[in-house]
């Protein structure tokens, strides 16, 4: 009788790049669904455009670099980058914004540094910051959530809006767009109103903005599912939310007229998306256990600092890129000790 001998390891690893990426995409569904419900189908058109552009860019640059094309395309990393970029964009962004952003993310931020696993910065956020810095006008035109908008756009209107930058004749641009909750807190504070006064405005819902809090809830749900599936560790999301929450609580305790509630900051803007999906990118984040907590705390506090005292209403992309920059140093100083080694 013949026994087959198998070399160790006897337990096959269960996580491969494409499996992880697929689960991340699945976890994004509740958030995307909420966004579609409150802001219309523009986000789906953006996702489709970004994915197509990212896959074409990935295929052509892999060809240029003489790398195997189909194997890398199938690992879905470009799709995740494209989807994360697309859901960060304003839903009425013209088509070329989405396409140029995806190309920049894949070609400059990912492949010029050596492709998946070598990029020091999160490609989706590099693409987003590139667009925000280059095209501030298109990147700050946010749509009003459906319950506040008097205009109902049909599918044809959406396609016209995104591809031809045309609104229906009876509608003007200012009727469909609206400042985001974070943006209005910022500008209204500048006009001398206090935060409790501002939050009685129609754009604000139970905790954060109308619509926005549900989108954030969707991402929280997806993120918790990723935690449960052990796709991401708890350290970065908890660290990030803690950093932001602590900072916001201290400021709120000092002066509740000048600083918004911590719960507002946790559910407004890109906090939940960033905490669970963007900061946790395994390539660009810190890797040691303690390091990831520090990394999360750092990004969380940066988000708060930039939101309140910086030049932009939301700061997840900038905070994540700054965090990426510090990740190697954090890893260096938090390397776990080998057993028996002296401090």
């Amino acid at each position: 009788m013949k026994f087959s001998t198998v070399m160790s390891p006897h337990l096959q690893p269960v996580n491969s790049v494409d499996r992880v990426m697929l689960q991340v995409l699945l976890a994004l569904i509740p958030g995307i669904a909420a966004m579609t419900w409150f802001f219309g189908i523009g986000v789906l058109i953006n996702i489709a455009l970004a994915v197509i552009a990212a896959l074409l860019a990935e295929a052509s640059i892999l060809g240029l670099r003489g790398r195997p094309i189909s194997a890398t395309l199938k690992d879905l990393s470009a799709v995740v980058t494209a989807v994360l970029l697309a859901i960060s964009l304003p839903v009425i962004a013209p088509w070329w914004i989405t396409v140029v952003g995806s190309l920049f993310a894949i070609v400059i931020a990912k492949h010029l540094y050596g492709g998946l696993g070598y990029n020091p910065f999160n490609p989706a956020m590099v693409g987003y910051v590139f667009l925000l810095v280059s095209f501030p006008m298109q990147m700050t035109a946010w749509l009003a959530p459906v319950e506040l908008s008097s205009v109902a756009l049909t599918e044809i209107d959406w396609l016209k809006l995104i591809f031809l930058e045309q609104l229906p004749d009876s509608v003007n641009f200012d009727a469909v767009t609206m400042a985001t909750p974070l943006d209005s807190v910022r500008t209204q504070l500048g006009l001398g109103r206090s935060v409790p006064e501002i939050q009685t405005d129609s754009a604000f819902g139970f905790i954060a903005g109308k619509g926005w809090e549900w989108v954030a809830g969707g991402y929280l749900l997806g993120g918790l599912w990723l935690l449960w599936r052990k796709i991401i560790g708890w350290q970065i999301p908890i660290g990030l939310l803690l950093g932001l929450g602590l900072f916001a609580s201290i400021c709120y305790a000092i002066d509740s007229n000048q600083f918004a509630l911590p719960s507002f900051h946790l559910l407004a803007g890109a906090t939940m998306l960033g905490a669970f999906f963007i900061a946790t990118d395994p390539v660009t984040a810190a890797t040691s256990v303690n390091g990831r907590i520090i990394y999360g705390l750092l990004i969380g506090s940066l988000v708060y600092i930039i939101r309140v005292w910086g030049g932009y209403p939301d700061a997840m992309a900038f905070a994540v890129l700054l965090g990426n920059l510090t990740a190697p140093a954090i890893d260096y100083f938090t390397q776990p000790r080998v057993f028996g080694q002296k401090t």
Partner: peptide, 18 residues
């Protein structure tokens, strides 16, 4: 053309030179 600010700002110079 409404312009692309990044190319005029300093990062554009670094990327362009590269």
């Amino acid at each position: 053309y409404s312009g692309m600010l990044l190319a005029i700002l300093p990062p554009g110079a670094f990327i362009g030179l590269g």
